[in-house]
Design a protein around this nucleic acid. Structure first.
Lengths: 259, 259
DNA sequence: GGTTGTGTCTAACATGGATTAGTCACGATG
DNA sequence: CATCGTGACTAATCCATGTTAGACACAACC
């Protein structure tokens, strides 16, 4: 798959670095430290637990490749997904301070997941540029969570699904995984429902309406957005909260970007 | 009002410091820098905008006293509240990187709000202990947002309201504002509804059920929780995500706590 | 002490989305 | 090639919550 690279000409971009450098360029030494995290990531099959609620892991996990989801199981068996994690996303930074996981995380697809010892995280956060970048990434995650609350709380099912698709489109684009308004969306209708507080039955109805209105096609885990502007409008989507800097999307294979 | 102090014996505790020190004690110099933030906070009336969507403020705002809410207005006039801000909470840390506000923030009660220039934030975040503490606080905020998503997405109205009350109880306790299972809760039923994706009519029905089941009383902006354990259970509330350290709740006016 | 505004509470009715219980297509597996 | 499992899709019915509209209590203000 051809991808947009925001780092150095010919190598595949490293999603974590691409994401963090959306805000500001990192010192080379820091980029090297980050790049090292991914080298011996573990392969995991689809639908495997990365961590469970209640765990007190001694590693921080980072998605290097593939998709995962953060989810909370309720006593009555209902599931609420609170995040979709894509390459470059940390799974459980908060566990250092929270002590135990208050939710679980599972892969959705075959994935590569880095297991980072606390000692390494400790070392990384000694670097001023990195701790700042991590904090900023957390602030962006927060903005995403807020938009999900709006989705679930006050948008109807049609708008909510549309909004989620727009969000994933922009995030995938930010890490260079969109090609011509098309990207892999390996979510079942049930997973989409669990993210938006809907049933899979209702998600199905909504997707059909999105297709009927010629906004998207979605088949075999591939999503194509036919009319992004109209979808954005129908869903009330404004990408400002994701902080897209043009310079990260544009320069494709022109070498490192300086400020 | 008598409060639990986690700082120095006789003075009123500073909520921001209390909150940040839930995780780890800060160097005295850092505490002094934080304490300085509150000294010339501005008085604001109830229901005043602190910032509006689209603003590009040149200050970061901090709630020193009173309550505020983060809210998003939708095209159809609906409002979704995404956070209740209490003393010690920052309003808009993310605006530095996001550029513009993607939502508004308004006071709910008479408040004191500190306006902190970016240059001061910049200086504070040069201090290793402080930037770490800010990041941690952001991670806790994230955990709160996740629990709201679960509230709105998969809990029914009764559980959701109960869960919110438990959350606010614990957070208020963390900053020393709970006395004998009782605290100020200056929210209208409409505001509670806007936080949980419900109408005020339905919130009213639920509150009456909570009273009928003898779990709470709520009158004139004062909430008393009669049976916290039962409420916690009815709402499926587990405070682990808020990271309560006993040592912050316990030591009541015994002077500074050291690790 | 009337008026105004705000918040609480109630009732009657309407509905978006849940629930339940399937069918069907397809890929993987033995 | 029969079987199994999973995900997409459909239809009929139901219910938690929304909508609308108004009564009531109380505080602030002239």
């Amino acid at each position: 798959m051809a991808t947009v690279t925001a780092q150095s000409g010919d190598e595949a971009p490293i999603p974590l670095i691409a994401k963090l450098e959306t805000v500001v360029r990192l010192p080379d030494e820091d980029r090297r430290a980050l790049a090292a995290l991914g080298v011996n990531a573990r392969e995991m099959g689809a639908r495997r637990n990365i961590i469970r609620e209640g765990d007190r892991p001694d590693h921080v996990h980072l998605i290097v490749e593939g998709w995962a989801a953060r989810y909370k199981l309720l006593p009555d068996g209902a599931r609420q997904i609170t995040a979709f994690l894509i390459p470059g996303d940390f799974c459980d930074l908060h566990v250092t301070i929270l002590g135990e996981m208050d939710h679980g995380i599972a892969t959705l697809t075959r994935s590569r997941v880095a297991f980072i010892p606390h000692s390494v995280m400790e070392a990384l956060t000694q670097r001023p540029a990195l701790i700042k970048a991590f904090w900023w990434a957390t602030l962006v995650d927060e903005a995403v969570l807020r938009s999900w609350i709006v989705n679930v709380g006050r948008r109807d099912a049609f708008e909510a699904v549309g909004h989620l698709l727009c969000e994933l489109y922009v995030r995938m684009k930010n890490v260079g995984l969109v090609e011509d308004h098309r990207f892999d969306l390996p979510l079942t209708q049930e997973e989409i429902g669990d993210a938006l507080g809907l049933t899979s039955v209702h998600v199905n109805r909504v997707l059909q309406r999105l297709r009927a209105e010629d906004l998207i096609s979605l088949r075999h885990g591939h999503l194509t957005i036919h009319d992004y502007r109209r979808l954005e409008k129908a869903a009330g989507f404004n990408p400002n909260y994701l902080h897209i800097e043009r310079r990260v999307q544009a320069p494709a294979s022109r070498g490192p970007v300086t400020l």
